[in-house]
Design a protein around this nucleic acid. Structure first.
Lengths: 188, 188
DNA sequence: GTCTATATTTCGATAGAC
DNA sequence: GTCTATCGAAATATAGAC
């Protein structure tokens, strides 16, 4: 892997573990095994490097979610598969955690990919919910946009509960609880 | 207000806005209008001060939630009132945000009140859900603990979505979407 | 492209006078 | 209780040699 690549990958790891404020150029350089000068040769500073890292994480996430939601199965089956897929629960969502970082939210360059990722995710899920309603699988009484937001929130909030408890249990409960409510809304 | 009080209140504000890693002793002193020596006279360091601040925020939150959930109305009405109560949505949850702070989660002294607050909250809500089931208001098919976790997660995740979008809208959608699903589970 | 040297601030705290 | 002085380390770069 090139030095440039190692810098991006190391930044991705550290942003996930420690956030933007908690990640220093020095720690990035150490993890990437790159020198000071090397980092500033490839990127003009911490912010630009972080942007490259966030972009890559966002792209990966989008591709993964899209593959799962575009797969076979009914709308409910795909949503359920998405929510139940294996995750690094205690590490949380690498994009969602950036939302709590004041310096990320204050810098338009860093904020943009975060905002776009969640806008895309909510809209993508709303589409699947709509498919479920149109297929007569879900009640026409439900609001696709609100339901999609509720599903994404259950995930993001599940991570918060898991970290607070230092256990995956409340995350699983939140997911299963949400799916149970969604299932009760299904047209049988 | 005493200097000690101002230090605690300033720390509460900064922890909420910037998190633990992002809050420096200096910034606390400036906001509290207290000198270096003053702060270290009242608290042995940043960690102890943060603990005092977190404790107070946790107590306040518990008292507020408890008052709302112990109020009049059916279980569903009280849950709905709790979820819909006025909030500083874009600022997020002052306790939930600490969950993303690696230094808070790594220090048992700081982690403890966060963990306890969420454990209490989930259990308190599970109690209300159980009341709803026993009153014949909610379906006996639902799992109180899972449903409680789903409700708390919707709130915490709603904050994440709101911050990502820089808008309260996705928060409101997540809450209304969750309440709609819960309502569909009601025994009519 | 990478290295070392240097620079300025801030972090988080201690010491000791008042 | 509060103030000023001081401290060693780290954050976030820039400069310039190789």
């Amino acid at each position: 892997m090139s030095t440039r690549e190692r810098l991006i990958e190391s930044t991705r790891t550290l942003l996930w573990e420690r956030g933007y404020v908690g990640t220093s150029p020095k720690s990035i350089q150490q993890l990437a095994d790159a020198g000071q000068g090397s980092m500033y040769h490839h990127f003009s500073g911490k912010e630009k490097l972080a942007r490259a890292a966030i972009d890559r994480t966002a792209e990966e996430m989008r591709a993964g979610v899209d593959a799962q939601l575009s797969g076979p199965g009914t709308a409910l089956e795909r949503i359920s598969a998405y929510l139940r897929r294996e995750r690094d629960i205690l590490k949380g969502c690498p994009i969602g955690r950036l939302t709590q970082d004041p310096d990320v939210m204050a810098a338009p360059v860093l904020r943009e990919p975060v905002e776009e990722t969640f806008a895309w995710l909510r809209s993508r899920l709303a589409g699947v919910v709509t498919e479920g309603v149109e297929a007569g699988e879900l009640s026409p009484a439900i609001d696709p946009a609100a339901t999609a937001s509720a599903i994404v929130a259950a995930l993001q909030g599940g991570y918060v509960l898991a970290r607070a408890a230092d256990s995956a249990q409340p995350f699983d409960q939140a997911i299963e609880g949400t799916l149970a409510l969604l299932g009760a809304s299904a047209v049988r």
